[in-house]
Structures are given as structure tokens and as C-alpha cells.
Simulated scan of single mutants.
Amino acid sequence: MVGTFYQPKSVYIDTDVLRSLPESELQGGLAEVIKYGVIADQEFFHFLRQHRQDIFSLQEEIISQMIARCCEIKARVVEQDEREGGLRRILNFGHTIGHAVEAASNFQIIHGLAVAIGMCAAADLAVRTGLLGKDEAREIRDLIAAYGMPTTIPPELGREEIKKFLLTDKKTVGGRVFFVLPTGIGEVVVTDQVRPADVDAVLNSD
């Protein structure tokens, strides 16, 4: 909840650092990468599907393209909404339920993998609210699964505990939980018009 809006003068990215990470941390980072495809760039989403093996083997040219595209998308969003007044919320796709899952697990599920679960949950919720077709939701889930990430909430996590954390999320305003929901691959909306019954159904689906 404490942060800064001062922008950096420059950003340095050393792709060799990726080779030092355990696989789970690499997967966690790639969950955030998939997020960018879902929220803003259908072509990038398909790029991630096409180059999965190159990405896992950290092929330099492909990795550099991937990182550059993520930076471009985030910079474009932040430039238009520097102080998180509206558009910037789309960067939280997968994080509403993801943060709650992460907290309910006592942070045993690392952030990126919790976001992967949250993205699948958000896609399911979008289907239930009539915003997204089942085939596109399946595409999102299948890509996340192809990268070896979890797609469902572990059964041992208490659903009421998850709901408690949902209500304390930073995207909750006046008791209203805001969700970032896909309307297609590359497009999302931010809405609080979600029925509690649909949230319950998503939290209890497998």
C-alpha cells in the first residue's frame, strides 16, 4: 500500500539473471508475461504459445522480444494513467483472486503462481458474467497449463478465508470488489458488477 509515483530515469534488464532462478520463480514471472497478452495484445498471446519451448530454454532473441513487449505494454498503460486513476487497473488482471489465494496459503504459493490461478478464475468469472466465450477462457487456461502453472485453487485452501482476503484487497472500494475480466484475448474490462453467487461458484470450481 506504500509506493511512489516517481518514474525511473532508465531501466536495465539483464536476461542472464533468469538462468539463476529456480523453475517455480521463472514460471511465476511468466504468469505476469501471459497477463500482458490477455489484457492488451492477442498477437503476443499467440507468440507465447508458439515460442513456449524457446522461452523455457531462455533463447536470447525470443526472451528479449518477450521482455521488450511486456515493457512496451506496461509503459503505455502507465503513461496514460500514471497515478492509477483507472486504466492502470488492468495491470491487476489475475491479481484480485490471486492475491487472496496467495494470502490464504500463508504465502506458500508464490505470487506469480497465485496470479496464474487468479487469471484462470477471472476468465471463468468472465464466462459466468457473459463477457467471455468458453473457447477463449479455455485458451487462457490452456496456455497457463502449458507453462506448467496451476490453474485451480488448491482444495485445502479455505474458501471463506479467500473471500475474507478479497474484501481487504487494494482494489476493493467501499466494500465493492473490482475485478479485471477479459472480454477477449487482448481486451479486458474493470467491473464491480459481479454477483456474489458467481464468485462463490468460481472459488468452488475445480
Rank of each mutant, 00 (worst) to 15 (best):
K74E: 09
Q80H: 14
I140D: 00
Q80M: 13
S24D: 13
T129V: 10
I153W: 04
L26Y: 03
I39N: 05
H51S: 02
T183K: 11
G29A: 10
D14V: 07
Q27W: 07
D41N: 11
G174Q: 08
A103T: 13
I34Y: 00
L48N: 01
Q7W: 05
E136Y: 08
V202M: 04
E82R: 10
L87N: 05
F107E: 12
E156R: 13
T129E: 15
Y147I: 04
V77M: 05
R69D: 06
I97L: 09
K134I: 15
D124E: 15
A114K: 04
K163D: 01
Q193T: 10
K170T: 12
K35H: 08
H111I: 03
V190E: 09
R176Y: 14
R176A: 12
K163G: 10
V190N: 05
A75T: 14
V17C: 08
V38N: 07
K163Y: 02
A121C: 14
I34H: 03
I67H: 01
T152C: 14
Q65T: 06
P154D: 05
V77F: 01
G130Y: 00
D41Q: 03
L48Y: 00
H95R: 05
Y12N: 10
I62A: 02
L18D: 07
S57H: 12
L18W: 11
T191N: 08
F5G: 03
T152I: 15
N204Q: 14
Q59K: 15
R49G: 09
G130P: 11
Q65C: 11
G98H: 01
L58V: 01
R141W: 04
H99G: 05
Q53Y: 12
Q7K: 13
D135V: 13
G174A: 07
A145W: 00
R159F: 08
P182R: 08
V127G: 08
P196D: 12
L26I: 07
I73N: 04
T172W: 01
S64V: 11
S64R: 15
K35S: 08
L181V: 03
G29Y: 05
K35M: 13
M119S: 05
